[in-house]
Every structure is written in structure tokens, then in C-alpha cells.
Design a protein around this nucleic acid. Structure first.
Lengths: 257, 257
DNA sequence: CATATACATTCCACCTGGTGAAACGCATGC
DNA sequence: GCATGCGTTTCACCAGGTGGAATGTATATG
């Protein structure tokens, strides 16, 4: 009789819970699987190492990661950016004292946040942003990315994006050509003032400046510095940290080419 | 330093080869991974047992099986709902004094929470809910959404969902037809009493009532009012706030059509 | 600002479950 | 009939995994 492997059984059980429940804490996994937390921690650490899972920096909860095998393959560049970006964004947070978001292109002119150093205690803003897709026209990440696309991509995407937007987003879409010139001139994009993308941002509204991440002149993602709007002005952050932000973006880009 | 689990590492390697190469023989796996055949055999037997892999009868080669977790890609409509929903849920929290969760469909009859006002409420219920996928049968959000699907969708999903659930969820799945009628009659879904959601030991038990969000008669998500069970009864919240909740859901739906 | 609490993480003595080389069995094809 | 290549089983050995308890850390509340 062929024997079975207990550790593998356990890891499957864990993955099934995470895949079924979305974001999950260690305690929740322990409750659902009946396994000791220490055991789950080791298995999850192994899965995280290969990026089958990712672990939130702020509260260390788990979710399915970018390398988990899918039917429809994600481009390797996504994984590469996450990998290259990990140490860069941590370093950038250390040197600036501000939170950093990292986002990758999802193919229709928009980006999705894949990693962040946001920490509630330290930065005072809502930390749980992974998986969120910021507005292409009003957010720092979205417009930094759009502005870095070449003319051809830009026209295809921006008309299509504008069609599907409503309300204030639509207004922002109309004004985007103007904004675009500014972003390109300044070398960064900033979040539209008083813009809050989700209810969780309401109250502690963040400010942000973003730049695109490019490899071989192709825009692949964006990253941004984020802080509580009431604490500092955009101008002062630009003055103090824009060059570091840009350098980090270039450095990530170089690791991809 | 956290230790890693070797067996889990090996099983990942094996799955990645199979997922990358399609149908795969034991010898090929041994060649690609450098592991002894006996080891691979045991791991694959474990994976086959849980149907993450299937083994062809004739030549015993492996391929990805029916129970391997499949991830549904996030549809673009998600962004529109978040955008339309954010001010509605803030307003709803302000007028009712209760927390509000907003969830969107992620396919297969399930929803994922994408925005919340739980932070605004003192003595709150477990606050970190974004990314969580509530039970389709036991939670207010999940069953409100299911009940709003048309007959065809409902039958496809609910049988598939029932297959993949275990334990208490399975029980709830069996009783769902009865529950469904009630939800449709009442115009809202409530959380099953014993359903604990994701927090293991945190605070008190939450109660919730949920309604679906629809555009052009198509269910796109759900939203719910959440409060501490010990503070108010479901009946009193329904009496006082159900109409506001329903109106908010309709209003979000209208912005999407 | 201090205190309480729910979690995550680390530690380490114990010992079971996994290991893999070798033997076996069974096709297929020369 | 014999050789070859594959999947499968066996079993003595011991590295690797285990899990209860201790420690560390973040958040909530008065």
C-alpha cells in the first residue's frame, strides 16, 4: 500500500481554507484546520517563500500569492516586480519614514497594488491595500502609470477607461490630458486632493506622490509614497523625497531588463 | 528564524512541473525535480487522494485534478461598485450608527468584502474584513447575494458550492432552499446565529442583515449592516434601518446601470 | 498614556513520520 | 526470449517535523 504524506495533506488543507475564505489570519487557519499554530506557521512560511501565498506586512495575514499555479498564466514580470520591489520599498520607507505602495499593470491601463509598507501605527493610514486597484485618473499610482505609457497605448486605453467611468471619475477623465502634461513635466503624479477611493480611507485621507516603473522604456507598474494628508504638504515631500522615490523606481526597472 | 517544511517544498515543485507541462509521468517528474521516485510517488498519491491531481487509468500519468483551487480573476465591475458604494456606505453608517460592509461578486456564487465602515464604530466588531470571503450559506452577505441570483445561475452555483464545503457549511448548504425562500420573502438575509466568521476570539458575536446589489436585474454584490449581537436584536434593526439599507443598495445599483 | 488582550512568533525536547536505495513486477519492443 | 524502462513496494534508519509553552507585538479602550 502506498503511504501518504501528512505534511502535504496539511498544506492542502491550509491552501483550501485560504483560497475559500480570502484573506485569513493564522488564528483563523488554526481554528478551521484544527492544527497547532506552530505547524501552520511553518507550512505557511514555506508557501510564502515560493510566493504561493503572500503575507501582509502590517498584520501578517495570508492570501493567495502571485506564483500560485493558475490556469491562465500571469506574466512573469508581475512576479519579478514584486520580488525586486520588496527590498526597495522597505528601504524607501526606512529612509523617508513614509509608507510606500507598489503596483503592477493589469493590462487595461490600470494597476493593482501588490505590496505595501503601510503600517497603521506608524503612518496613520489604512494599511490593508493589497489587491486594490486605484483610480487611473485620480490616484497617484494610476496616473503615474498612465503618463508613462507610450502614445499608442495611451490612446487605446484612456478612451476605453473614460467610457466605463461615471461621476467624479468621469470628470477626472475629461481633465486628464491637462494632468498628463503636468505629470510628465514634474516627473511625478500626485493624488487628487481630498480624493478618497474607499470608505476605509474616509476620515484619514491620504496624500501620495507616484512614479512609474519601467523596463526597456515599457511601463510595467508604479510606486508611490503615501502619508496622512494633514501631516505634510505634497510640496514638502517632493522637496525632501522625490529623488529617492524616482531612484528606487529606476532601480526596480533595471532589475527587470 | 522560522523553519520551512521540506515535504511542502517538494510538493510545490512537483505541482509546478505538472501545471507547467500538462500531463506528466513519474519518470519525467523525477528527472525535472531531481527527487527519488518513491518520494514523488508518495506525494503524488497524497495529491491524487484529495483530487488536486488525477491519474490516468491506463498509464498512470498525472495531470491537474478537479479539486485543485482555481482562482477567479477580479472583474472590472469591482472598481465601479467600490466607487459607487463608498459614499453610500459612509452615509448609511452616519445615519444608522451601525457598521456597513460592501461585497462584490467574484464568480462561482461567492462574494468578497471590498470596503467597510467598521473602523468608524467604537467597541467595534472585528475590524479587518477587507478581502474576506464570507460563507455563501451562513453569512448575511453571502446568502443575500445567492438569493438574488436568477434560477439558472443559482442551480449551477449552489450544487457546485455544496460539493466543496465541509462541516457546518455543508449543513447550511443542505438547508439553504428553505432559507432562500425566507430571504426572498423578507427582503433581506441575516447571519446564521452560530456563524463566527473569521475572528476566532475577538470581542462579541456580530449580527448582520444583508441585501443584494443589482444592476439591470443582475446581482453584482451585496451590502450589510453589522452590529454586536448583544446590543440589539435583528428585529429592531430591521424595523429601524432595513429601508435605508435597501435604498442604499438600489441607489448603488442605479449608478451602475 | 497605561493597561488589557488577542494574535503572531520563537523555542526546544521528543519521537514519529518521512526517506530513498534496492528489490520487485509488469509491460513493451527488438 | 531477453533487454529495457517504467511504476510500485519494501524496510531499516534517523533527519525532520512536531506542538505545548514561553515570549514578542500590535491594537483597543478608559
Amino acid at each position: 500500500m502506498t503511504k501518504f504524506n501528512r505534511s502535504v495533506e496539511r498544506s492542502m488543507k491550509i491552501i483550501e481554507v485560504i483560497s475559500g475564505s480570502g484573506v485569513t489570519s493564522l488564528a483563523f487557519l488554526a481554528d478551521q484546520t484544527g492544527l497547532p499554530k506552530a505547524t501552520i506557521l511553518r507550512i505557511c512560511a514555506t508557501l510564502v517563500k515560493q510566493r504561493w501565498l503572500t503575507q501582509s506586512r502590517s498584520d501578517s495575514r495570508y492570501r493567495i500569492g502571485p506564483s500560485f499555479p493558475r490556469l491562465s498564466a500571469t506574466p512573469d514580470s508581475v512576479d519579478a516586480i514584486i520580488d525586486a520591489g520588496k527590498s526597495e520599498i522597505v528601504a524607501l520607507t526606512e529612509s523617508t519614514g513614509l509608507a510606500v505602495d507598489l503596483a503592477v499593470s493589469i493590462g487595461n491601463g490600470r494597476v493593482e497594488i501588490v505590496d505595501t509598507t503601510r503600517h497603521f501605527i506608524q503612518h496613520g493610514i489604512f494599511p490593508d491595500t493589497i489587491g486594490y486597484r486605484p483610480s487611473p485618473f485620480r490616484s497617484a499610482l494610476g496616473s503615474a502609470f498612465l503618463a508613462a505609457l507610450d502614445a499608442e497605448e495611451l490612446t487605446t486605453y484612456s478612451t476605453k477607461l473614460a467610457e466605463n467611468t461615471r461621476g467624479k471619475d468621469r470628470e477626472a477623465a475629461m481633465n486628464f490630458p491637462k494632468r498628463l502634461l503636468e505629470v510628465r513635466k514634474n516627473g511625478f503624479a500626485s493624488r487628487e486632493e481630498a480624493y478618497w477611493g474607499r470608505a476605509v480611507d474616509y476620515g484619514g485621507t491620504p496624500s501620495a506622490i507616484g512614479v512609474a516603473i519601467q523596463a526597456d522604456k515599457k511601463a510595467l507598474g508604479a510606486m508611490s509614497l503615501v502619508w496622512l494628508a494633514e501631516k505634510r504638504t505634497v510640496a514638502s515631500v517632493v522637496e525632501a523625497h522625490l529623488d529617492q522615490l524616482s531612484m528606487a523606481a529606476v532601480s526596480i526597472g533595471q532589475q527587470l531588463s
